[in-house]
Design a binder for these strands. Sequence first.
DNA 1: TATTGTTATACTCTATAACTATA
DNA 2: TATAGTTATAGAGTATAACAATA
Lengths: 154, 154
Amino acid sequence: MPDNSGISAALVRLSFLVQRLYAQACSRHDLSPAQAQLMCVIKDQPRGMTELTHMLGLERPGLTGLADRIERRGLLRREVRPNDRRTVMVSLTRTGKKVTEAFYAEVTASLQGVVAHLPADERQQFEETAFSIIMAEQVPAIFGDFEAAGRSAV
Amino acid sequence: MPDNSGISAALVRLSFLVQRLYAQACSRHDLSPAQAQLMCVIKDQPRGMTELTHMLGLERPGLTGLADRIERRGLLRREVRPNDRRTVMVSLTRTGKKVTEAFYAEVTASLQGVVAHLPADERQQFEETAFSIIMAEQVPAIFGDFEAAGRSAV
DNA sequence: TATTGTTATACTCTATAACTATA
DNA sequence: TATAGTTATAGAGTATAACAATA
C-alpha cells in the first residue's frame, strides 16, 4: 500500500518503463531514441533549428549533429528559408515520414499494451491526471497528435 | 478532452518531464543520469555487476565503464567476493552515500512538486495506478525505498 | 566448458567555445 | 551588434567482439 512519498518512485519507475519500451521500438527501426524523438517532433510539420532546441532541450551544436546523422540516412531534409536566410527549416523526407509513422504506431501500441489490464475508468482517470500534469508543467509536444482538438503544439 | 489513444502520448510526455527533472537534479550534484541511476540502485545494498546489468538494462562493458567513472570520483567501491572470486560486489563509499541521499531527496521533492497541484484523492489514485503498471510490468527497483513494506527489490 | 568481468573499438549523444553568414 | 547555424573538441554512454580469470 503506497504511502504519499511513494509517488516519486512511481514516477521514476514508470518513466524508466516508458523509456525502455520507447528504446525497444527505436531498435526495431534502427533509430536511436534521440533520433526518433526529433523525427516525431517534425512528423507533421517542419520546424526551425532553434525552435527544435527549445522543444527537445538541447544546445544547438547537439541538434546540428543529430540532424546530420538522420539526414545522412536520407530520412531528414534541411531547407534554407528565403525570408531569413540564416534560418534552416527541418522536415522529414518521404522515407523519413514512413519510418516515423511506423515507429509512432509501434510505440503507441506498445504503451497501450501496458495499460490494457486496467479497468477502462481507471485508465481514463490516469490519462486525465497525466495530461493535467503535462499541461501544468508545459511539457513540449514531443509525441502525440499535435493537430487534435484542444492539444496544440509547444 | 483526451480520447483513448492519447494515453500513449501522455505516457511519453510524462516520461520526458520526469527525465528532465531527474537530469536537473543530476546536474546540481555533478552526476550524469546513468551515474545517478546506478548509485540509487546500490544506495541501500551492494550488488553484483551482472545483477546490475539486469536491473539497469545495460550490457556488461557499459556497466564496467559506468562504475569506473563513479569509482574514479571516489563515490563507489568494488570488492571481490571471497566465495566466488570472479564476482565483484559494488557499493557506495561514505561520500557516495551522502551524495546519493542528497540527490535522492531532491528528486523526490522535485517530483512531489509536480503533483502538488492535484487534489489528494486524485494524486493517490494516480500513484496506485502507476504502481499497478510497474508491478504488472516488473519494472526493476531502480528508485524508491526498497525496504518499504510490500515493495521489495527487483 | 560456462560464467564473471574487463579491455578494445567504434559510434552516438551532448556540452562549451569559437567561427561564419545573415539581419 | 544580435541571431541562426555550424565546426571543433572533448567526455560520457553504450554496443559488439575478444580476452582473462575463476568455477
